[in-house]
C-alpha cells in the first residue's frame, strides 16, 4: 500500500469547493418545489461536500465539519422529522401524512401542504446525508490515518 502524505493543493481545492457544494445541496433541497430536486438529491450533495473534506484532509480535520459521532443521531432525526410530521397530523385528527392537519396557524390548506412537503424534504435530506457519511466513516474506520 502506498504511503499517504498531505498535499496542500488537494486540501486547498477541497476547502474551496466544499462550501459551494454544500450551498448547492441546500439550494436543491429548498428549491425542490420549483425545480428538479428534493431531499434525496440534496442530501446526496450535502454528503458529497462532507465526504470531499473527509477524503482530502483526513478524519481529524474533517470531524470539525461534521463529527463522526453525530451522523447516527442525525439520521434518526431525519427519519423522525418525516415520521413525526405524519404522526402529528394523525394525532390531531386527520390522516397519516395529511399535511392539512398540521397545527401551523395562519396558513390556508394549500400552503399547509406546501409547508408539509418542505418539512419532510428537510427530513429526507438529513437522513440521506447522514446515511451516506455514516457508510463512508464505517468503511474508512481505522484505515485513514491522521
Amino acid at each position: 500500500m502506498k504511503r499517504s502524505f498531505e498535499s496542500p493543493i488537494t486540501l486547498l481545492g477541497a476547502r474551496a469547493l466544499a462550501p459551494f457544494i454544500m450551498m448547492f445541496g441546500l439550494y436543491v433541497i429548498f428549491h425542490g418545489h420549483y425545480s428538479p430536486g428534493g431531499g434525496f438529491q440534496g442530501g446526496a450533495l450535502l454528503a458529497a461536500s462532507v465526504l470531499l473534506m473527509r477524503v482530502a484532509s483526513g478524519s481529524k480535520t474533517s470531524s470539525l465539519v461534521l463529527s463522526n459521532a453525530i451522523t447516527t443521531p442525525m439520521g434518526v432525526l431525519g427519519v423522525f422529522i418525516y415520521f413525526g410530521t405524519g404522526l402529528l397530523a394523525m394525532l390531531l385528527g386527520s390522516n397519516f401524512l395529511d399535511y392539512e392537519g398540521l397545527p401551523i396557524p395562519g396558513l390556508s390548506p394549500e400552503y399547509l401542504r406546501y409547508t408539509g412537503i418542505l418539512i419532510i424534504e428537510v427530513g429526507v435530506g438529513l437522513a440521506v446525508m447522514a446515511a451516506l457519511v455514516l457508510i463512508y466513516d464505517k468503511m474508512a474506520d481505522g484505515e485513514v490515518s491522521s
Partner: peptide
C-alpha cells in the same frame, strides 16, 4: 392543492408520501 409548480415534488411528497417514507427508512 399544494401551490407547488413541480408536480413531481407534490406526487413524491404529498400524494405518495408513505412510499417516500418507506424509501427514507430503506436508506436509513
Amino acid at each position: 392543492e399544494a401551490k407547488t409548480p413541480n408536480i413531481v415534488t407534490v406526487v413524491l411528497g404529498d400524494y405518495r408520501s408513505i412510499d417516500t417514507l418507506g424509501e427514507v427508512v430503506v436508506v436509513f
